[in-house]
Amino acid sequence: MLNALEVFTTVLVGLMVGVEFSVSFVINPILDALPEDSGQLGRSHGGRMLGALMPVWYIGSLALVALWAVAGWGDPGTHLVVTAAALLILSVVMSVLLLVPINNRGKTWTPENRPEDWKEQMKRWDRFHYARVAVIIGAFTLLVTALA
C-alpha cells in the first residue's frame, strides 16, 4: 500500500511540475507573443482556470507527501520526503503571499479596465513563478530520489 502511495504521489507532483513548467516556458511566452490584447486576455483566462485548479493540486500534493512521510517514517529516504514536504510548504507560502495577489488582480483584467502597469505586474508574477517552479522541481527531485 505504501508503494502505491509513493508512486501516486510522485506522479501527481510530477504532473504539477510539468504544468507549472509549461506555464513558465511555453504558454506565457506564446501568449506574450500574440498581437494586441490577445496575450493579456489569454493570461486572464489562464489565471481564472488554473487559479481554481492549482490550490487543490498544491494542497493535495502536500497532503499526500505528508502522508507518505508519516506512513514511511523510519524507512530509508524518509528525510528526503520530509524535505520535499518542506519545499511544498514553501511553494504554498510563496503562492499565497506573492503570486495569488497578482493573479487575483490579473484574472479580472480586460483591455478596458487593466492598469497601465499590467505588463510590469505580469513580469513580476513571472519572476515569482520561476522561483516557485524551481522549488517544486526540487521537491519532485527529492521524491523521485526517495522512491528510487
Results as ranks from 00 to 15, higher is better:
residue 122 M to C: 08
residue 141 T to V: 09
residue 97 L to H: 11
residue 130 Y to V: 12
residue 146 A to D: 01
residue 67 L to K: 08
residue 58 Y to I: 08
residue 46 G to H: 07
residue 136 I to N: 01
residue 32 D to Y: 05
residue 71 A to C: 09
residue 40 Q to E: 13
residue 57 W to R: 10
residue 147 L to G: 01
residue 61 S to Q: 07
residue 142 L to V: 00
residue 116 E to A: 14
residue 38 S to Y: 13
residue 14 G to I: 06
residue 83 T to D: 13
residue 34 L to H: 02
residue 144 V to P: 01
residue 29 P to R: 05
residue 54 M to F: 15
residue 107 K to W: 11
residue 115 P to G: 06
residue 29 P to W: 00
residue 6 E to I: 02
residue 118 W to N: 05
residue 18 G to V: 03
residue 28 N to R: 11
residue 37 D to W: 03
residue 140 F to P: 00
residue 98 L to P: 06
residue 148 A to K: 03
residue 63 A to N: 10
residue 60 G to H: 14
residue 92 V to C: 13
residue 134 A to Q: 00
residue 108 T to L: 15
residue 105 R to A: 15
residue 100 V to R: 13
residue 76 P to D: 14
residue 138 G to P: 01
residue 139 A to I: 00
residue 98 L to D: 13
residue 83 T to V: 13
residue 73 W to V: 10
residue 130 Y to R: 10
residue 37 D to P: 04
residue 140 F to L: 06
residue 56 V to L: 15
residue 133 V to Q: 02
residue 114 R to M: 05
residue 108 T to G: 15
residue 59 I to K: 09
residue 110 T to E: 06
residue 93 V to R: 11
residue 99 L to K: 06
residue 1 M to R: 06
residue 25 F to G: 09
residue 41 L to W: 06
residue 147 L to P: 00
residue 56 V to S: 12
residue 75 D to A: 15
residue 95 S to F: 14
residue 61 S to I: 09
residue 72 G to H: 05
residue 89 I to M: 14
residue 96 V to Y: 14
residue 68 W to N: 04
residue 83 T to Q: 13
residue 105 R to K: 15
residue 31 L to Y: 09
residue 72 G to W: 04
residue 71 A to N: 10
residue 88 L to N: 12
residue 24 S to Y: 05
residue 82 V to G: 15
residue 125 W to P: 01
residue 18 G to N: 05
residue 92 V to W: 15
residue 10 T to H: 02
residue 7 V to P: 00
residue 5 L to M: 06
residue 67 L to M: 14
residue 34 L to Y: 02
residue 55 P to Q: 07
residue 54 M to R: 07
residue 94 M to Q: 14
residue 32 D to K: 10
residue 60 G to E: 12
residue 52 A to S: 11
residue 110 T to Y: 10
residue 47 G to E: 05
residue 29 P to I: 00
residue 16 M to H: 14
residue 85 A to W: 08
residue 18 G to P: 03
residue 36 E to Q: 13
residue 39 G to C: 07
residue 133 V to D: 02
residue 137 I to Y: 01
residue 114 R to V: 04
residue 109 W to R: 08
residue 58 Y to C: 05
residue 5 L to F: 02
residue 146 A to M: 07
residue 12 L to G: 10
residue 5 L to W: 03
residue 115 P to F: 03
residue 96 V to R: 12
residue 77 G to H: 10
